[in-house]
Amino acid sequence: MSNENLVASVSVKDVAAAAGVSIGTVSNVLNQPERVLPATVARVRAAIAELGYVRNDAARQLRAGRSSSIGLIALDLANPFFAAVAKGAQERAAEAGLFVLVAASEDTRDREMAYLDHFSQQRVVGVLVTPASGDPDALKRLEAAGVRIVLVDRDAGDAPLNSVSVDDEEGGYLAVSHLLSIGRRRVVFVGGPSTLPQVLDRFRGARRAASEVADSSLEHLETAELTVLAGREAAAHILERDAADRPDAVFCANDLVAVGMLQGLAILGGVRVPDDIALVGYDDIDFATATVVPLTSVRQPAVEIGRAAVELVLEQGEQPQPRQVRFTPELIIRESSRATLSI
């Protein structure tokens, strides 16, 4: 018989027999060791180690009706913003004695639904999710089945769901207002796909800022993804234009796109940033300060968003009505939109 089969065959009854105690005492050692004499705890733990006993958490969760885990479904874990959200969620969950199971939908509804189904089967305490679509029906069904749902980086709108979001329209407004305030007038918003609510909201804010300055213009250069490569490809489109027809400012829908834009313009295209083209990103990821020209960016408090989302899961038993938490973004000005530095 293999070691794996031996471990699987060891039961609480076997541990109790080896330690010379009752099954109830073993259970107390596993779940409430403070109720057992230290010498007995040591004897039971020695038996567990000798026999190689592994507790069956799946069965324990089935009996309890819930697990000690929270599911988190992000759009893209390669994006540092979502990694920071997960960090905040893990911090707050750990404080409550819970764990976070992290998954990525890759902005695909089928994959999102598969993870939602899996987390439901695992009887997680709740699910934090940045939806891959605007359809809340599946999430509402999970809520009705007792799984606590919190939308992350997405406003719930009229849906009866908890949410933690950032005022992205205000963020877009801050970015373009800043570019206009330093004398830029031909602004291009780079990012997509336009089906993402965050992208639409940031563009709406940018458009509102541009409408307040009579001689300004704003165009939208849509990308298929919010990645560094997409930013470089967008930069190539700008470089194809005659110099007189190029924008004098670019606002990117996130920092990854902005990093690619900076690489394409300044390093590959010989464009001076910010002298020729000023550049602003969004999210204020850690890498924004380490680019060849430090990046001006609209900061989202990603860690705080993750913590707040877990907090909503924890309070739902006491707060039956859905609650929406919305953070205010902050513009962080660096060299990419200052006229004193060029490369």
Score class of each variant (00 low, 15 high):
48 I>Y: 08
49 A>F: 01
49 A>M: 01
49 A>G: 00
50 E>T: 15
51 L>R: 07
51 L>Q: 11
53 Y>H: 05
53 Y>T: 02
57 D>V: 14
58 A>F: 02
60 R>E: 07
60 R>Q: 13
61 Q>G: 11
61 Q>E: 05
61 Q>L: 01
63 R>Y: 08
63 R>S: 14
63 R>W: 02
64 A>C: 05
64 A>W: 05
64 A>E: 06
66 R>T: 14
67 S>F: 10
68 S>C: 07
68 S>I: 01
71 G>V: 13
75 L>E: 07
75 L>A: 14
77 L>S: 08
78 A>R: 10
79 N>V: 00
79 N>R: 08
80 P>H: 09
82 F>L: 01
82 F>D: 07
83 A>G: 03
85 V>I: 08
87 K>R: 15
87 K>A: 15
88 G>K: 05
88 G>Q: 06
89 A>V: 05
89 A>I: 03
90 Q>N: 02
91 E>T: 14
91 E>M: 15
92 R>I: 04
92 R>H: 09
92 R>K: 11
93 A>F: 07
94 A>H: 11
96 A>Y: 15
98 L>A: 05
99 F>M: 10
100 V>W: 04
101 L>A: 09
101 L>W: 04
102 V>M: 04
102 V>Y: 06
104 A>W: 13
104 A>E: 12
104 A>I: 10
106 E>C: 02
109 R>W: 10
109 R>F: 04
111 R>Q: 12
112 E>R: 04
112 E>A: 13
113 M>F: 03
114 A>Q: 08
116 L>Q: 14
117 D>K: 02
118 H>W: 05
119 F>Q: 13
119 F>M: 14
119 F>A: 09
120 S>R: 14
120 S>V: 02
121 Q>D: 10
121 Q>N: 08
121 Q>S: 11
122 Q>W: 03
122 Q>P: 01
122 Q>D: 08
123 R>T: 00
124 V>E: 03
125 V>W: 00
125 V>S: 07
125 V>G: 06
127 V>A: 10
127 V>H: 03
128 L>G: 10
129 V>Y: 14
129 V>R: 10
130 T>N: 12
130 T>F: 11
132 A>S: 15
133 S>G: 11
133 S>A: 11
134 G>E: 14
134 G>T: 15
135 D>Q: 09
136 P>S: 13
136 P>G: 01
137 D>R: 06
138 A>Y: 05
142 L>I: 09
143 E>G: 10
144 A>H: 13
144 A>G: 05
145 A>W: 06
146 G>F: 04
146 G>N: 01
146 G>M: 00
148 R>D: 04
148 R>A: 11
